[in-house]
Design a protein around this nucleic acid. Sequence first.
DNA 1: ATATTATTCAATTGAATTATTGAATACAAT
DNA 2: ATTGTATTCAATAATTCAATTGAATAATAT
Lengths: 221, 221
Amino acid sequence: MTLDIKHALFTQFARIGKVLGNAHRLALIEYLAQGERSVEALAKVSGLSVANTSQHLQQLRQAGLVETRREGQRIHYRLSGEDVVVLLDAIRNVATRHLAEIDQLVDTYLNTKDNMEPVPAAELVQRLKRGEVTVLDVRPEEEYTAGHLPGAVNIPLAELEERLAALPPEREVIAYCRGPYCVLSFDAVAELRRRGYRARRLEEGYPEWRSAGLPVEETRH
Amino acid sequence: MTLDIKHALFTQFARIGKVLGNAHRLALIEYLAQGERSVEALAKVSGLSVANTSQHLQQLRQAGLVETRREGQRIHYRLSGEDVVVLLDAIRNVATRHLAEIDQLVDTYLNTKDNMEPVPAAELVQRLKRGEVTVLDVRPEEEYTAGHLPGAVNIPLAELEERLAALPPEREVIAYCRGPYCVLSFDAVAELRRRGYRARRLEEGYPEWRSAGLPVEETRH
DNA sequence: ATATTATTCAATTGAATTATTGAATACAAT
DNA sequence: ATTGTATTCAATAATTCAATTGAATAATAT
């Protein structure tokens, strides 16, 4: 009796879970967390066909995770709210806390690529004091504005290529994003190295930095 | 190149999502949030066969969401960490914020059952001042200890039947749990009414109460 | 009007998931 | 040893999901 309603409720919740149960859709959400994107752009970065991308996006929309806006002949998708990012982070947290495979993955990744070991927060604090490094925040602008590491430069990943000039080429760059397994900073480091920069990832993300009680800056306006 | 690793990472994250994409498993997690339970007990409350329950639980275990402990001939399952509850809440939040169906569901539920309208926080504050009502916290003891409404009695749902004596029968009972759609308080109210109590749900859950700046108590020891 | 571009729809295929059933373990009690 | 109880495993059928293909919209440009 009351079980019916309860089951119906959980069935609705499960719609959210179901739609999160696919690597491509999670990747799409991650890209969308950087800002609004067209279907074509999303297809390109995710490596999926346009039709397939469109169908995944529609599932996300039916689950209420994304919304659309038409502009001329293209349709722009965006996350439907901040809480979607929170949800993705919650999954990331549980996954990294409980799935040993993830540590392995990151390990093999680090060992494959030439020394891409992340910089621990403590080390960064020291080097910041000596003014040795450029700190790069690759998260979307809104998140940067809400709070960031002291002195960090904000260049969202998508704009990195064109705004490279903002980074002095001789200084090592330490990139960070949302957490230890947020892929944005991986990509940023890869890109910077291609361009000849010395670049490494910060081991922790902004949330960890902040909750460790380390100094942060907030932009007011 | 870097896409392989990224995809592998998201595939791991998707394992979590996939396992959350089923109403029965979400219900199992909800029950487990109340504390350790045997397979048989979980099968009973969820209305599934034992074999089916067992298989769902094993999926949850493979995804790292639950852990087991053997005691004699029965195996007790428990959530593998607090972060699993956080994750479930994140899903609930997104779902209720974006899926209109859920409000409808709850509406029809409320209209079906004789006036089960929830009590808004503001109303409870007034009635608490006049000492009219018993406030009942049906969450697990640990969550109650971490913080609860002022003067609330804690009886986890599973113990409600046996500890009914703790509730004065003539006073109306206002039950609450984690959020507006946490099913624990629905069940509690249903049970109390069966026993002849006047009982209603608090519209908000503890997190909403707290973040509204209303007074809370924390148990220290 | 016609062609072009971006996106969506519909149908198909093969793979994965769910619930059910009955058999198999693993421990406990007699 | 034998029996009973709790849980898991294995096989099956029904359902659902993912990717592909080609056609259909919908706005824009010629």
